[in-house]
Design a protein around this nucleic acid. Structure first.
Lengths: 209, 209
DNA sequence: GTAAAAATCATGGAAAAAGGGGAGTAAGTA
DNA sequence: TACTTACTCCCCTTTTTCCATGATTTTTAC
């Protein structure tokens, strides 16, 4: 029985590349592609692929969120994350949101086929590079645990607000904001605000708006 | 006479996609690909393509710099920039460094063929989106033009260094670093360092290390 | 219901950044 | 050659962050 494949990616050349890589595979049935999250969800109303290859960077929605949505509605569909980055935080979040695998865009045909076949059996697959990123020692890659309030303060700091402004925004004292700031610096092991923001951005903790 | 095409891109799927898009074209001769700048230059010693499709993000060298180098050594080779971004600054710099065209990775086969044919005749080609980005007034375009030195300072700031430490690292005066910092804040329209780093990260101006 | 974690607030001082000026030199371009 | 750009350097003042060291009150979790 052929595995039905669907792709969500906004880059035509990548879609064509994957299509080309898979077109001679007998046990693969190409169902087509979507170039954004909305048309992916629309497609899924009527058609049910076995495996979705899903880019993390989509024009309308975050691939990580789309993964969550799809998995919630259609738990039987297996999802493989697809991106140019092998950053631990991306991979981790994708897997947390129900993805069964993660492949980099410089993967070979072999890797891609291995990923699809493994995932189609219900198992998990991580490309070598992705697995390597995940296996890094705890202190090198773990995102610190921050509280709800700290996250709020962090976002406002990154927006360029001073402690005073943040205090007024959140209706709390300046000294409280200062405490949160200090705790953030400690948790992220950052020397100052600049380093803090950089690390937070790398860990994808700041929404892009 | 067939146009000889060579590709420099570190994403196997993109290479495969382009190959697939071009394989049925009669007047295209596929010469192969390189996945980094070094092997591209090595290839060019013995072989001379007519047109090179060149990714902007390469593992070893900036595509913009590679473009300059190639054009300097082999002025007869036409180069088409290739990337996922249609940011004005990228396109502009690529064209300044001798590229004859710029195509986004979500281009269709038609666009790609049009680009190759146009460029092979010695003319310039910009994809619709790329041309649009270039035509935008400066203030609408979000990527400020920063100098080499400013970029260095920016990177060190984002690493958490103080003006004093940066000064010692770059062997310049603290006041000079301060000037660069002030100019960066002005160019990025950032209220403080935190906002500066966030914007720089969003614009992909800080290497991930 | 108690213990832990989170959120709140505070003082005071040292360090750094932000904001306002001005100015000279070197290199490349029109 | 004249002009522009990048890079360099300096002064002064105010604002903000960073650091150390406290403490009290809510929430949350077991």
């Amino acid at each position: 029985m052929a595995t039905k494949i669907f792709i969500v990616d906004d880059h035509y050349m990548v879609i064509e590349g994957i299509h080309s890589l898979l077109q001679n595979e007998k046990n693969i049935e190409w169902m087509g592609h979507a170039s954004n999250g909305a048309s992916c969800l629309a497609f899924l109303i009527h058609e049910k692929p076995d495996v979705i290859l899903m880019d993390i960077n989509l024009p309308d929605i975050n691939g990580i969120d789309l993964c969550k949505t799809v998995k919630l509605k259609y738990p039987d569909i297996y999802i493989i994350g697809l991106s140019t980055f092998n950053q631990q935080s991306f991979i981790e979040k994708m897997m947390e949101n129900g993805a069964s695998g993660y492949v980099l865009k410089n993967a070979t045909q072999q890797e891609l086929m291995e990923a699809i076949n493994t995932v189609a059996e219900g198992k998990q697959y991580l490309s070598f590079d992705a697995a390597l990123a995940l296996r890094k020692p705890e202190h090198e890659n773990d995102t610190p645990v921050i509280t709800r309030r700290e996250k709020e303060v962090l976002a406002l700091i990154a927006d360029g607000m001073t402690n005073n402004e943040i205090a007024q925004t959140l209706f709390i004292s300046v000294t409280t904001v200062d405490t949160h700031r200090k705790n953030l610096l400690a948790k992220f092991n950052a020397r100052n605000t600049a380093a803090l923001v950089k690390i937070a951005m790398q860990l994808n903790l700041l929404a892009i708006n």
